[in-house]
């Protein structure tokens, strides 16, 4: 390979390389620093509703006063109140259950897509993504009408004679999980499909040739080889589900709050920006672990060259 490092880069080239970094700094790092800084403040009846406020006109002493006034009090509050812990655990539970269901539903779909005739596959990919063409909110509202007391689901269950009295769906965890699984299915199916499609079909033949029936070669050959895709799909779903707000807010009950709802309440109802910010920071720290772990897994796989 030619050595590219010693090639002179023009300012224009450097700008192109710098652009994504500038983007990340402006729209990710700076907002995160602002949120982090608010999380170290105290709530106040003021505009903005927290102290301290950095007063640059006071010069260096103003900065020193500002830094002295920052405290980790909000984090202590989050740690001491079970409400927040339960909220985190609830989110994690919903995310894990939903992701597990997504995997169980998504894998056969992706498998069928990858095995479909080659000319049909682009069409199937479009079909998977088709729901995106309708507003997300409208689709969740549609689920509200489906899941309500005299909704489509209960009508169907009664008509089929599966239940005598219509069960309650709305405002339950089940409804939240139904809504989440429905909404996130494409994010599970597409990475799985991508890794299944890459899979060399002759490996299945080799496994069969060596005495492995189809179901067994799926576990012994297919699954180990698509693990990166499974990891990608699970993380792609689990991470945003943990912070999901709209679906539990519309389909869930007010008693079991996921962390996104707790955050929303702190921010808009309690006007407690520091606690809301601290919740967001803790959530990010919790999610950085799995993301970093997955990144490490992937880079190792790239090094090994598969």
């Amino acid at each position: 390979m030619p050595d590219v490092t010693d090639r002179r880069t023009s300012p224009g080239e450097r700008l192109i390389v710098a652009l994504p970094y500038l983007w990340l700094v402006a729209f990710f790092l700076v907002p995160f620093l602002i949120v982090g800084r608010i999380s170290l403040s105290q709530t106040a009846i003021a505009q903005p509703p927290y102290t301290p406020v950095l007063d640059l006109s006071a010069g260096l002493s103003g900065i020193a006063d500002f830094v002295r006034a920052l405290s980790t009090e909000t984090y202590g509050l989050i740690a001491s109140d079970d409400l927040y812990l339960f909220s985190y655990l609830k989110s994690l539970q919903v995310a894990l259950v939903s992701t597990a269901i997504l995997l169980v539903i998504g894998l056969p779909i992706a498998h069928a897509m990858a095995r479909a005739p080659a000319r049909l596959q682009p069409l199937l990919v479009v079909a998977v993504m088709l729901p995106f063409w309708t507003s997300f909110l409208i689709r969740i509202y549609a689920w509200m009408t489906i899941l309500q007391h005299d909704g489509l689901l209960n009508q169907a269950l009664l008509a089929l004679g599966l239940v005598d009295t219509p069960p309650v769906w709305l405002a339950t965890d089940t409804a939240v999980i139904i809504g989440i699984v429905y909404s996130y299915l494409p994010f599970m199916v597409l990475p799985l499909y991508a890794s299944l499609q890459k899979l060399d079909e002759t490996l299945m033949e080799a496994a069969a040739d060596l005495g492995c029936p189809r179901w067994k070669s799926f576990w012994l050959v297919t699954v180990p080889l698509i693990l990166p895709g499974v990891g990608a799909g699970c993380l792609l779903c689990m991470i945003p589900i943990v912070g999901e707000f709209v679906i539990p807010d519309l389909l869930g009950s007010s008693e079991t709050m996921m962390i996104g709802q707790t955050l929303w309440t702190e921010f808009f109802s309690n006007k407690d920006w520091p606690v809301a910010s601290a919740i967001a920071v803790v959530l990010l720290v919790l999610l950085v672990g799995p993301i970093a772990g997955y990144e490490a897994l992937q880079s190792r796989q790239i090094r090994e060259g598969r």
């Binding site: 490996l203 080799a206 496994a207 040739d209 060596l210 005495g211 492995c212 050959v221 180990p224 598969r306």
Partner: peptide, 29 residues
Amino acid sequence: PPWQRPVNMMFQSYALFPHLTVAGNIAFG
């Protein structure tokens, strides 16, 4: 079915299992 036939095939692309070692590949059958 192929998995019960007493014949074995050496594939043009070799079709070695990338997730298994050399010994694992040979031991597979």
